[in-house]
């Protein structure tokens, strides 16, 4: 489990805190989406989970982040990396090799995985992510979505308990974006991997995530199941977070009819709601 306690962080040279007194518990096996306007501190929070902050990115760090009981500030980044895999916003810069196979091997080699186990881990990672056919391809010949999958596979090979992703679909088209989220769902459901994903596309989060944390001005201002968080559309709008049309539909309908209408998280629920109302 990830236990973030009163975390405050200010980047070196910055005039304001990027995170202000953030407290958040993320249970094992959760699929958490983090959303919020630009500059809310989403990336900072994501980088704090795996210990990139404070180990690689310097600044004033107050409070504590514990992953499986390990305090990120007291443990080496290398040790934390066995627990948490982080996918950065700029995927391109995260790739260290020029061939897919080498990229997957990189972490396995460094962490000293026994030779006879490496092949098995490689097959697992490539198979799980669905890119077995790309094993011998060069990175430069891959599309954006494929590169994203290679980076995820390179982390999955290390079998972390937690996967943190910072806007993994930022540069992808709708169908590749959905593929990435389906992949995250299968890792979450089949292997119980905890998934923490920063994402602007609210509809993807509503479809795939179980919990939502909404950030604004360095704070976590909402934290709950997707349904709970979507219950307060006016509040989200005020923060600057978009809502799926299905939720707007149910909320406006409730206004129009002057009675309680349950929140429609996705299109299916909206259709169902409408049918039930019409009778």
């Amino acid at each position: 489990m990830i236990d973030i306690r009163s975390l405050t962080f200010r980047y070196d040279g910055a005039e304001e805190d990027a995170l202000r007194d953030v407290t958040l518990e993320i249970p094992d096996g959760a699929f958490l989406g983090i959303i919020g306007p630009a500059g809310a501190g989403k990336t900072t929070l994501a980088l704090s989970v795996g210990g990139i902050i404070p180990h690689e990115i310097r600044g004033d760090f107050y409070g504590a982040v514990k992953v499986d009981g390990l305090d990120t500030a007291d443990n080496k980044l290398t040790d934390l990396s066995r627990l948490v895999g982080t996918v950065f916003q700029d995927v391109e810069s995260q790739i260290v090799s020029s061939v897919v196979e080498d990229e997957i091997l990189y972490g396995l080699e460094n962490f000293g995985i026994p030779r006879d186990e490496i092949e098995e881990r490689m097959d697992f990672a490539l198979g799980q992510v669905g890119i077995a056919g790309l094993r011998h391809r060069t990175i430069s010949s891959l599309s954006g979505g494929q590169r994203q999958k290679v980076v995820i596979a390179s982390l999955v090979a290390l079998r972390p308990k937690i996967l943190v992703l910072d806007e993994p679909t930022g540069e992808l088209d709708p169908s590749s974006s959905r593929q990435i989220f389906s992949l995250l769902r299968s890792l979450n459901r089949e292997y119980g991997m905890t998934v923490v994903v920063v994402e602007q596309k609210i509809m993807l989060l509503c479809e795939f995530a179980e919990r939502l944390a909404v950030m604004s001005e360095g704070r976590v201002v909402r934290d709950g199941t997707v349904r709970e968080v979507l219950g307060d559309i006016a509040g989200l709008e005020a923060i600057g977070v978009n809502c799926p049309r299905s939720a707007l539909f149910s909320s406006l309908l409730s206004e129009k009819l002057g009675r309680e209408v349950p929140v429609a998280v996705n299109a299916d629920e909206a259709v169902e709601t409408a049918r039930r109302i019409i009778g």
């Binding site: 950065f88 790739i95 972490g107 460094n110």
Partner: peptide, 21 residues
């Protein structure tokens, strides 16, 4: 960012024998 990503995947643990190939 590349250096950070490498460190997060055990850059500092790598030795001469690490290479799989």
């Amino acid at each position: 960012a590349t250096a950070t990503a490498a460190k997060a995947r055990g850059f500092e643990l790598r030795t001469r024998q690490s290479g799989y190939k």
